[in-house]
Design a protein around this nucleic acid. Structure first.
Lengths: 190, 190, 190, 190
DNA sequence: TATGAATGAGTGTTCATTCAT
DNA sequence: TATGAATGAACACTCATTCAT
């Protein structure tokens, strides 16, 4: 039941937003009563926090696996991280959208916790870029922090427009975005 | 007074969000009463729509100017559009953030109107890219629609993290982002 | 309307208790809506605090008048204070009962404020007793603080059983209680 | 377990009040579940009634013992009853406070039962006073009912301020109160 | 004896909106 | 142009109580 509630909440939060979704909306859909909701969650915010934690913890865990792969080059690792972030939108699109949009409705303390984990994701990318610059895989004159923001912009903003069931597949999107990031769009006349 | 209300609303909507800001909050700051608000606006949503319209119409207008400049190359036009979108965050950050975050609180009909104008901005970029590909300035194998989304991701997502008063200047950000988009990050060993 | 609300609230709080009286109960009786209540009071507790303040401030003011009367002896002053406290039960019985019973539902800060004023009433009585002992009007071996509690017990507890519309008049009660306090109940065989 | 529940309830009811204490609060402290509570008590009110009954029945029983002592004078009996009532505050303070404060949360029928027993305590005192007046121990012109209320006011109100662990001992309080009641506070210049 | 899931009526509070003045 | 009193629907949350196991 707790699982069912979380899932239905993600669905509704994504469709209507956190504030616009009432506890009544959630329990109505599951055909239970409000009391039942509060049996499993102590508050609406706690539910939102649970959704956030599940999302970011899973993401961090999978990112660590990519980082630890010793056989990968930095370029491969970046490509894998881009794939990870983009695919998340396909696989768990709704919770991703909730994650990116509703964080502000958490309490200050919870925001701090989530932002710290989000920063970890960001700093992990930054580190790979630095390693790639040092090893000569990447151009030496880059600003790693800004490049990281560029990558996160591409992947995170995709939840705003990318529909996994649309014409373009998420694998294609990964390939195109990696190509842009790595090679740029200008024609080189060598 | 109407102007003052709009401005104060943008400020509050940005700080606390549309739903979390009450009419009472707005009128309290201006030291008038709720009646006054309803003299100038027929509803809270109408105020939000006014903010959206002002933002997007101004943006479209300035984008058109860039597009019409006959002396510019496609690459220059793209760079100018990136500059336009990034600078907006600096100059009218709050209304930009409101624009990107609160659209969902408009009525369906109003959402349609705003999205149409937003699409216009997007299609304008797409067209410049196509022109650049045709003229040989840009690589011929690009997907213009996706590249457009990439550009919009970089610029629009910047409102999430970019602080105009921080270390990095918006001019620098424009330059770095243009460099990434045009040249990529990989070291070319020609 | 605010006045009407306070009065009806006192009436209901006295009959059913603060917690058992809902805002709905109050507004139903006045045939208005809950919104109206919150137009005049920011919370249920604030209403309770208003009731407390009005009661104790009025009491203190009238007590001061008694204390300042230069022509009265200490015995007369004590008798007048007993009359003041007892008559309050008759004149504004309901708010007195609310005052003595519901203080615990105030916030800690508000409890502090009210208790301080209540202590003032108590200390004022204590001072009169000391003066009476010094001047020889009262027995020299009394404990003024305990005697004060005795007086307050008699008067304050009367709200628990004394009905002003019953057989015995409040003037009689004052006389009897003053007689007990001053002379005791034992038969003196001098 | 039933005993433990009653005791913990008294403790909580005294600290937070009957309405402010939830069944959940009680069972949490005992580390059992709500189901367990309803195994032993049919309702929250029934628990409150049990507390009241235990208190008043015990009091009545001990009062009867005092009344039956043939060797005591009326004055001695009154002094003993004052001691009984005051000491109860020391020995079972919490349940006394619950008794005096929360009776209103009983059902009408239960209120009737408790009030009847409370009246018995009162009428017993009244009877001793009458006997004392008839035998010449007490002043002949007293109103026994009012004097009884005076005694009960002194003793019952003491739960509002008297702290058994404070400076003054309950034995001293008994002595002082008895002295006031019997002798008054005025200096007699015979 | 005890649990834990579920109920449903109720609570204080918020707030966009209306309207006579 | 602006006010201020009033509305009413909604909201998050509480809690005594039930009952199958």
């Amino acid at each position: 039941m707790k699982k069912k509630m979380t899932e239905k909440s993600i669905e509704l939060f994504e469709k209507k937003g956190f504030t616009q979704t009432s506890i009544q909306d959630i329990v109505d859909e599951l055909e239970v009563t409000k009391g039942t909701f509060y049996y499993y969650f102590s508050s609406k915010e706690q539910l939102l926090m649970a959704i956030h934690l599940e999302y970011i913890d899973d993401l961090l865990e999978r990112q660590e696996k990519i980082l630890k792969a010793e056989s990968s080059s930095s370029v491969e690792k970046i490509r894998n991280i881009i794939a990870l972030l983009i695919h998340d939108i396909q696989d768990k699109g709704p919770s991703g959208r909730v994650f990116f949009r509703e964080i502000r409705h958490l309490s200050d303390e919870n925001i701090r916790i989530i932002k710290q984990k989000r920063n970890q994701v960001r700093l992990n990318i930054e580190k790979v870029i630095r390693t790639g610059m040092d090893s000569g895989e990447l151009r030496p004159n880059l600003k790693p922090d800004i490049i990281t923001f560029a990558i996160l912009s591409l992947t995170n903003y995709s939840y705003q427009w990318f529909k996994p069931d649309g014409e373009i597949l998420s694998d294609e999107l990964v390939q195109i975005y990696a190509d842009v990031i790595f090679n740029g769009i200008i024609e080189k006349n060598d």
